[in-house]
């Protein structure tokens, strides 16, 4: 029997309708980003131009300033930028190796039953709200740091790094483990059949083959570390000035600066908090761009 080939109107309309739905969803995401950027940059950059209704502030003083005292009209975020870099870099330095070894352990070395315990535990770690990490850090880590610290409190760069390290672990482990599992079994077999040991196979074949995924994990970890606010506030100490000179120094980061004062700030003070947000935003964009470049090169080889 010949099939009817005339147009099915209902189907055509339905197709068009869903095209529209998908487009709308995509536009919402793009629009949100655009709105956030316009809003933050609009408010945050205003103080650096003459004619601002709450008075202007020198951009150089802002970016290089080592003191944040709104009551006396000093708004310097230089020390926060440096501290943010210290904290993020520290957490990555400590967290990435631990995460890498954990992922290798789960994916390659652990017996099935043990991997079956460790993996869900790590996944659960990722689902815990960040404020709970902060509370944990406040209750356990800062008292611990206090034991060794030359200063009277345990609030410190070290405490921040420890909390951030624990926080980024699950993100990196999950991504890296998936990447390791995705390495074709034939690579491993090929390596072992050449008389390589299990450890040689992991370091020389499996991990290099998974490097693109490993970099993705690190990028996500950096993103999480630099943007984290709640957990950090509770253990950082948040002083009004000072670049960390030792790991026991109290620190204020870009994120915590905004969260701490947004509640009561007004006028120029409020605008300067948006300026802090601009710095944070640019900071994260630079890191993302750099890491994306690294990943592109790493993946191309």
């Amino acid at each position: 029997m010949k099939k009817d080939m005339s147009l099915n109107k209902r189907r055509v309309v339905l197709e068009k309708f869903f095209h529209g739905v998908f487009l709308l969803a995509a536009l919402i995401a793009v629009l949100s980003v655009a709105l956030i950027i316009i809003f933050i940059f609009g408010k945050g950059l205003a103080p650096f131009f003459s004619g601002n209704e709450y008075g202007t502030y020198s951009f150089i003083d802002f970016i290089t300033g080592l003191k944040w005292t709104p009551q006396s009209g000093e708004y310097g975020v230089g020390y926060m930028i440096v501290n943010s870099i210290f904290a993020t870099f520290g957490a990555i330095l400590v967290g990435v190796p631990i995460a890498l070894f954990t992922a290798v352990f789960i994916a390659e070395i652990a017996p099935k039953w043990l991997a079956g315990i460790v993996r869900p535990a790590i996944e659960l770690l990722a689902a815990i709200p960040s404020v709970l990490y902060g509370v944990f850090g406040f209750a356990v880590i800062t008292p611990l740091v206090k034991q060794f610290s030359p200063y009277p409190t345990g609030d410190s760069l070290l405490a921040v790094i420890i909390v951030l390290t624990i926080m980024i672990l699950p993100t990196i482990v999950a991504v890296v483990e998936t990447a390791i599992r995705a390495v074709p079994k034939s690579y491993k077999e090929g390596s072992l059949a050449l008389g390589a040991s299990k450890i040689q196979t992991i370091f020389k074949v499996t991990l290099p083959a998974a490097r693109s995924g490993i970099l993705t994990g690190i990028i996500l970890g950096v993103g999480r570390a630099i943007g984290e606010t709640m957990a950090v506030i509770l253990v950082a100490g948040n002083p009004e000035s000072g670049i960390a000179t030792t790991i026991f120094s109290r620190v204020r980061l870009l994120t915590t600066n905004i969260a701490l004062e947004q509640g009561y700030a007004a006028k120029l003070h409020e605008q300067m908090l948006f300026s802090t947000a601009v710095v944070l935003f640019i900071f994260i964009m630079i890191i993302n761009l750099v890491l994306a470049q690294i990943q592109k090169r790493g993946g191309d080889r």
Partner: peptide
């Protein structure tokens, strides 16, 4: 005792 597999499996290097 070396081995060659069914599917060619050179390492990505």
């Amino acid at each position: 005792v070396g081995m060659v597999f069914q599917k060619p499996n050179p390492f990505p290097m």
